[in-house]
C-alpha cells in the first residue's frame, strides 16, 4: 500500500508540473500582455500613464525577463502560495480570489455528493426492475438531464424563480454575509443557498452516472454466481447487496475520473451564469482582459481540484479493491 501511495503521489506531482507548463503557455498565448493593453487603453481615454508604476510592476513580476524565467518565477510563487498580482483589480490574486477558492471546493464537493446520493438508488432500482415503467420514466428523465446543458438549465430556473416567485436565486449566501469573514451564520446561509446550484450542476452528471451504474449492475445480475446464491436460498435483498452490487460498485467509484472534470467544468459556467461567488466569474473577466496571473491561478486551481479529487478516488479504490492495492495500480 505504501508503495502504491508513493507512486501515485509521484505521478500526481509530475502531472501537475506538466499542467502548470500547459497553463503557462496558454495564458501567454494572447499577443502582448495586460500592461501593454492597459497602457493603450489609458492613452485612448486621454489619461496620463504612470510610467513609473508600470515599469515597477513590469520589473516586480519579471515581465521583462525571458519566458522560461517568468515560468519558473510563476511556478515558484504558486508552490509558496503566492498566486501573483491581478492587474485588473490592482490587488494580489490571493486577495481577489479569497473565499472563492473555498466556496468553489464546497460547491464541487456537494455536487459530487449529490450525484452519488441520487444516482446510486436510482441506478440500482433501474437495473433490478429493468424495463419497468419506473425504469423507462427515469431513463427518459436521465436523457433530458443529459441533453439540457447546465448553463441553459440555470437560465431557465433563474427565469422561473424571477417570474413566479420574484426572487433571485443567483447567489451563494444572503446579501448581509457578502464580504464578511466566515462565521457559523454565514456557513448556514451558504448551505441554504447551495441547493439550487448543486442540483443544476449535478443533473447531467447524475444522468450519466445512473446509466453507467445500471449497465454495470445489469452485467452482473445474470451471472452464474448470482443464480447459485439464489438457488441456495439467499433472500433477494441480501443477495443483491452481498454479491452483484459489490462488483458493480468499483466502476461506480472509479468513474469519478470522468465525473470530476465534468462537474468542475459545469460549476465554472453555472457560476458565471448565476453569478455565484466561486472562481468562475473572475476567470471570464481575467481571460477577457488578459489579466494572466489571475486567469492562470484559476486555471491551475481547477486543474488541482480534479487531480486531487482523482487521487482521493484512486485511494478509495485501492482500499476497496485489494487487486489494485497489491498490483501497484494498473487501472
Amino acid at each position: 500500500m505504501l508503495n502504491y501511495l508513493a507512486r501515485r503521489i509521484l505521478v500526481m506531482i509530475v502531472t501537475l508540473a506538466i499542467i502548470s507548463l500547459m497553463v503557462f503557455v496558454i495564458i501567454q498565448l494572447p499577443e502582448g500582455d495586460f500592461l501593454t493593453s492597459y497602457i493603450t487603453e489609458l492613452q485612448s481615454q486621454g489619461e496620463a500613464v504612470d510610467k513609473q508604476k508600470i515599469e515597477y510592476l513590469r520589473a516586480q513580476y519579471g515581465l521583462d525577463q525571458p519566458l522560461w524565467q517568468q515560468y519558473l518565477t510563476w511556478v515558484g510563487g504558486l508552490v509558496q502560495g503566492d498566486l501573483g498580482y491581478s492587474f485588473e483589480y490592482d490587488l494580489p490574486v490571493t486577495v481577489v480570489l479569497g473565499d472563492r477558492l473555498l466556496l468553489t471546493i464546497v460547491v464541487n464537493f456537494f455536487s459530487v455528493l449529490f450525484i452519488y446520493i441520487i444516482a446510486f438508488p436510482i441506478g440500482v432500482y433501474s437495473a433490478v426492475r429493468q424495463y419497468s415503467w419506473g425504469d423507462y420514466g427515469l431513463t427518459l428523465v436521465g436523457f433530458l438531464g443529459l441533453a439540457t446543458p447546465n448553463f441553459l438549465l440555470a437560465l431557465i430556473l433563474m427565469y422561473l424563480a424571477n417570474r413566479y416567485f420574484g426572487t433571485s436565486i443567483g447567489t451563494l449566501m444572503a446579501p448581509e454575509y457578502l464580504d464578511q469573514p466566515m462565521s457559523f451564520g454565514k456557513m448556514i446561509s451558504i448551505l441554504e443557498h447551495l441547493a439550487v446550484p448543486v442540483i443544476i450542476i449535478g443533473t447531467a452528471g447524475t444522468a450519466g452516472m445512473i446509466r453507467r451504474l445500471r449497465a454495470n449492475l445489469l452485467d452482473e445480475l445474470f451471472k452464474q454466481y448470482v443464480v447459485t446464491a439464489r438457488a441456495k436460498g439467499l433472500s433477494e435483498g441480501k443477495l443483491l447487496v452481498k454479491y452483484p452490487l459489490r462488483m458493480a460498485l468499483n466502476p461506480f467509484i472509479a468513474d469519478i475520473g470522468n465525473l470530476l472534470p465534468q462537474v468542475v467544468s459545469g460549476s465554472v459556467i453555472v457560476s458565471i451564469v448565476m453569478g455565484l461567488e466561486t472562481v468562475g466569474p473572475p476567470l471570464v473577466k481575467a481571460l477577457q482582459s488578459q489579466d494572466f496571473f489571475l486567469s492562470g491561478a484559476v486555471l491551475m486551481f481547477v486543474a488541482l481540484l480534479t487531480v486531487i479529487g482523482m487521487f482521493i478516488s484512486d485511494l478509495a479504490l485501492a482500499v476497496l479493491d485489494p487487486r489494485i492495492r497489491l498490483q501497484g495500480g494498473a487501472r
Binding site: I19, P261, Q262, S265, V298, T306
Partner: peptide
C-alpha cells in the same frame, strides 16, 4: 483530467 470548459475558454 483537465476540466474541458475552462481550457476551451482560455
Amino acid at each position: 483530467s483537465l476540466p474541458e470548459l475552462p481550457l476551451w475558454m482560455a
